[in-house]
């Protein structure tokens, strides 16, 4: 399937000095984080290698990468449609036979492609863990899949706001807001519930249980997906399992759920939400909606 917008965007983006600068900054920051985390994990003795430290080290790199992507993706996507409006190129695109869905998908895929470029460019840095061992190719593939889902999910939120707002600045602010809201809402809700429980109880936390709906809400949070992924990758690590909504003070039913399967369901649901947002954005962008209003008036006149 050929998408003219995708080809055009990839070509134009590749020529932007901003991309090269972004890649440089991204990898430099990541490299510093890797060195810092490496020093923290292996500072006692270089001759002794603890494999649990290696995988923990790797998980820190994943978190660092997630934080950088969370910062980059909204800014990339929020201007995609609003920017076309500001540059006064959108009207021209809308007068062509290309559907609004093709325009939206082209924009989203182009940005996802840029994100993949960031991910692939960071593989040499992530490969530091291969020097020590303990991390397999599957773990790298899992990160790439997660990054793609994250880029499409947050990207679709960005595109949605970009279709609504005429100004890039408003679209960017709301996208960042929605991104933070989506990522941390279940955790904030959990901590508020926990705090209310503690303030009304004797102070013992053992009796507090996370309601099921809050755990299900976690399926829409990329942070919960990340924590599930880390918990799945580092089976022996109890810390990630403890902060995963499935396991913090949940009843035995939720605790029995496999975090790997939970992560898959979470990513699938996020892709579903992304699909809905993409379709909604395409609908919003349509300049003339199948002549509904016009028809009504014509019928009245008759």
């Amino acid at each position: 399937m050929k998408n003219p917008v995708l080809s055009k965007e990839l070509r134009a983006t590749a020529r932007r000095p901003r991309l090269v600068l972004g890649l440089f900054v991204f990898n430099t920051v990541l490299a510093f984080m890797v060195v810092a985390v490496f020093r923290l994990n292996f500072y006692i003795s270089a001759s002794e290698v603890s494999y649990s430290n290696v995988i923990r080290f790797f998980s820190w790199i994943e978190i660092a990468e997630f934080l950088l992507l969370a910062f980059i993706v909204p800014s990339l996507m929020a201007g995609s449609i609003a920017g076309e409006r500001e540059k006064q190129t959108l009207d021209i695109l809308l007068t062509t036979p290309m559907s609004t869905l093709t325009i939206i998908v082209g924009k989203l895929l182009a940005s996802t492609g840029t994100i993949l470029l960031f991910i692939f460019s960071s593989i040499p840095i992530m490969s530091v863990v291969f020097l020590i061992g303990g991390v397999g190719l599957f773990d790298i593939v899992l990160i790439v899949v997660y990054a793609c889902v994250f880029a499409i999910y947050i990207g679709s939120i960005g595109i949605f706001f970009s279709s609504i707002f005429r100004r890039t600045i408003f679209a960017t602010i709301t996208t960042y807001g929605a991104c933070v809201f989506t990522c941390v809402l279940p955790y904030v809700a959990y901590w508020i519930g926990y705090w209310i429980y503690l303030s009304g109880d004797d102070g013992l936390s053992d009796g507090f249980q996370v309601p099921g709906w809050l755990i299900l809400l976690g399926l829409f949070s990329p942070v919960d997906s990340l924590v599930s992924m880390l918990s799945y990758q580092i089976a022996g690590n109890t810390w990630y399992r403890q902060i995963c909504l499935l396991n913090i003070n949940a009843d035995s039913f939720w605790q029995s759920v496999n975090t790997g399967e939970w992560m898959c369901v979470s990513m699938l649901l996020q892709m579903l939400v992304a699909a809905v947002l993409i379709l909604a954005s395409a609908k919003i962008l349509e300049p003339v909606k199948a002549g509904k209003k016009h028809w009504k008036i014509e019928e009245k006149n008759v």
């Binding site: 055009k8 070509r11 134009a12 983006t13 020529r15 932007r16 540059k87 006064q88 190129t89 009207d91 021209i92 007068t95 062509t96 036979p97």
Partner: peptide, 16 residues
């Protein structure tokens, strides 16, 4: 979209 070629009064072009 197949019948009309439209040239607006103000329009932008793509950089790069």
């Amino acid at each position: 979209k197949q019948l009309v070629g439209y040239m607006p009064d103000f329009f932008g072009v793509y950089d790069n």
